[in-house]
């Protein structure tokens, strides 16, 4: 143990692999810079978002496929961002780990619910 350099002892101690997450944060950012405005503008331009019209919007293949890209990109980008915020602002290690667990499970739950919604509407109408 004493033979390890200070760097050797520090490597791998972080909660996450920083470089990889930094890169993925940018990849999802670029995806969302395209998909985000598409989603907002597309819905804002709908004359009516009652059940029938909203259902038809989500059931259309192009919208459904783009939503299947948007939801994971949003959830992953949000996951990475919130993790960084917690790592920066929650000092105590036990609280930090609890907060990280809660946030990550919440993101999985939200992602699963949103994807299920998209798939059910999109595939339900195709059958």
């Amino acid at each position: 143990m004493s033979s390890k350099s200070p760097l050797g002892r520090a490597l791998g101690l972080g909660l996450v692999d920083g470089t990889h997450h930094w890169w993925l944060q940018r990849v999802t950012a670029v995806a969302l810079a395209l998909l985000g405005p598409w989603f907002a503008i597309s819905l804002l331009l709908q004359p009516d978002l009652g059940y029938v019209h909203a259902h038809a919007w989500l059931a259309s293949p192009v919208n459904a496929v783009l939503m299947l890209l948007l939801v994971p990109a949003l959830v992953y980008h949000s996951w990475l961002g919130v993790v960084v915020v917690i790592e920066d602002y929650v000092p105590a290690k036990s609280k930090k780990i609890t907060a990280l667990l809660v946030v990550q499970f919440l993101h999985l739950l939200i992602g699963a619910a949103a994807l299920f919604g998209v798939l059910k509407v999109a595939l339900g109408s195709a059958a």
Partner: peptide, 29 residues
């Protein structure tokens, strides 16, 4: 960014309501 993370709950609620049928969607809408 943190606020938008919170708004993911709205997106998921909207999509789930849309998948659950007209009565549920009407409630969320």
């Amino acid at each position: 960014g943190v606020a938008l993370s919170g708004s993911l709950l709205l997106l998921a609620a909207w999509l789930l309501a849309l998948a659950s049928g007209a009565p549920c969607y009407g409630w969320v809408a």
